[in-house]
Every structure is written in C-alpha cells, then in structure tokens.
C-alpha cells in the first residue's frame, strides 16, 4: 500500500535519516522502534508528506506522493508526537474545528465528533478546555483529532509518552480496535518494547537514522537464536568476577545492572559450567542463574550495544 524507498534526510550536519526502506500492507500494524534521536519522527514526517526527503521516494500504490501529496493526505491520519491542539478551545471545539478543516459538516460532523469522543473516552469532558486536561486526556484527544475523517491509514508518533499506565492501555486497546473493526492500517512509533510487541505484526528497529532490523517479532528474535542470554544474580558485585567474564573467550557481552549481570554466550558453549568455574575462582556467591528467552530489548542491545532507554 505505502512504501518508503531509500529515504534520507539531512539537517545541515545531522543525518537524521539514512536510506530507510519501509513498507506497509493494508490492514497491518507496523511498529517503528528506536531510542531518542533515532530518526523516527523525521521518517514519519517524510512519509506523511510534511517534509520532503533529501533523497528517496515515498509511494502510495506505486505512485510517488512527494510532488503530489493530496491523495495520500486524504486517506491519512497523523497523530503527532507533540500535542497538536488548541489549548484554549474545548475538546469538542477542537474536534469540530479539525473536522470542518477536513470538510465535514452538518450532522455528519456532529456524528463523527460524538463517535470519536466516545472512542477516546472524553464524552463527559468534551466541554472542558484542553488546557485544563491531564496529560493522558490531551494524548487521547490528540489521537481523536486524527480519526475524524476516518483515515484508512494512521501514523502515530509515540502516542503514549508521559502518561499513566491506565491511559496507556486504553490507547493501545483503541489502536487494536481501530485496526480490527475499521481495518485501519497503522504505523506505530514508540520506544517501548512492550507496546510494539503487543500491537504490531511487523517491526522495524531504527537507530541513528538506519533501520537495523526488520521483520515479524519471531524473525527479529531469531537474530539472537545463535546466542543464549544468561541472567546471573549475585550477592555482591565483584569487579574481578566481571572482568574475568569479559575476558573469557566464549562470553560475547556482559552488562551489569545493580546485582543482575546479563551475559551473552554462543548457544553451543557449555556456559553454565564455565560461569560456575569463574564464580568459584573469584569467590563470588551466586544467588540465581537462568537462561532467558530473548526479548526485543535484548535484540536491540545486541544490535546497538545500548539499552533502548536509560
């Protein structure tokens, strides 16, 4: 349906996006995952025709939308990362305004507004000014404003940042529902693994302007199939133990967080006996040791050497 081909974006020195390829099939939920500054918002702005790319193309059903964005815009809803609303208008007034901008009118507009208010759970508060809303309510309205014209495709840029878990679940459920009931295609940006794992059929992992990995959850996790992730909890972190782990040839990577040490080793290595041996040699007391199934977090760690959030 929609694809981005080798798009790049340069802001003076910054290479915000570096040859990104990405596609969306009708009815899918796609996740775009990456840490701060990865280039997610820039990618999305290009795909949604708000900024032109430095090079590359964006195509809707094989037609470029860079020069003629109108067709895409008609079927597109965008939920921007920032709250793009008028704080001095009420929730209802905001929706009415944006609905009219989308050339809705009369009873059709009224009905859509009621429907959206219902969907985002703000019917009771529709007459309150947005500036008096909580963060979560603003987020919900920010999403609602993109739904009035019943887009076939919705692009959401971190729609859940900075809100309580309850509102967050509500939003995630809403996205799922839109996808199921209205057959809406979704491009969902986030730096929360759980959200993407929960929502998405396919995932793109992005960092420093590049797509590092793409595929279904399983495909991405298979990147780690050659390795075991072993989590060791120790009584007291002992520098010589860590150093010995790092120095050992079969250990690929060591990260330490409080008393939990995460170690990546090749599948075939006999990791347990090696770890026990090192512990004994360095006088380290282990309280637990387990092999973990890899998470997307681990994949990210593997790909970038950094945690997704710090």
């Amino acid at each position: 349906m929609l694809e981005a081909v080798e798009i790049t974006k340069r802001f003076k020195q910054t290479h915000a996006v570096n040859g990104v390829n990405l596609f969306l099939e009708r009815g899918e939920i796609i996740g775009l995952l990456g840490p701060n500054g990865a280039g997610k918002s820039t990618t999305i702005s290009i795909i949604s025709t708000l900024i032109p790319p430095t090079s590359g193309d964006v195509r809707l059903n094989n037609e470029s939308v860079i020069k003629r964005p109108e067709k895409l815009r008609k079927i597109l809803g965008v939920v921007p990362q920032e709250i793009a609303l008028y704080p001095d208008l009420s929730a209802r007034e905001n929706l009415l305004f944006f609905g009219k901008i989308y050339r809705l009118s009369g009873s059709q507009l009224k009905q859509k507004v009621e429907e959206v208010l219902e969907m985002i759970g703000l019917t009771d508060r529709q007459h309150d000014l947005v500036k008096n809303f909580s963060g979560g309510m603003k987020r919900r309205l920010n999403i609602g404003a993109a739904l009035l014209h019943e887009p076939e495709l919705i692009i959401m840029d971190e729609p859940t940042v900075g809100i309580d878990p309850q509102s967050r679940n509500y939003i995630l459920e809403t996205v799922k529902r839109l996808n199921k009931e209205k057959k809406m295609t979704v491009l969902y940006t986030s730096h929360y693994m759980e959200e993407v794992e929960f929502l998405c059929n396919r995932i793109y992992i992005m960092d420093k302007g590049n797509i590092l990995a793409a595929g279904t959850k399983e495909e991405i996790k298979n990147i780690l199939s050659a390795e075991n992730t072993i989590q060791i909890t120790v009584e007291r972190v002992n520098d010589s133990f860590i150093q010995a782990l790092r120095d050992h040839p079969v250990v690929n990577r060591v990260t330490v967080q409080d008393r939990v040490i995460t170690v990546l080793t090749p599948k075939e290595a006999n990791a347990f006996s090696i770890l026990f041996k090192i512990a004994e040699e360095t006088n380290t007391m282990l309280t637990s040791i387990e092999i973990k199934t890899p998470t997307l977090e681990d994949v990210f760690l593997h790909l970038t050497g950094r945690a997704l959030r710090n």
Partner: peptide, 8 residues
C-alpha cells in the same frame, strides 16, 4: 501540520 495534512 494538521491543516497541511487536511490539504488546506
């Protein structure tokens, strides 16, 4: 941006 996206 919303206005732009609405083809205003």
């Amino acid at each position: 941006h919303r206005l732009l996206l609405a083809n205003v």
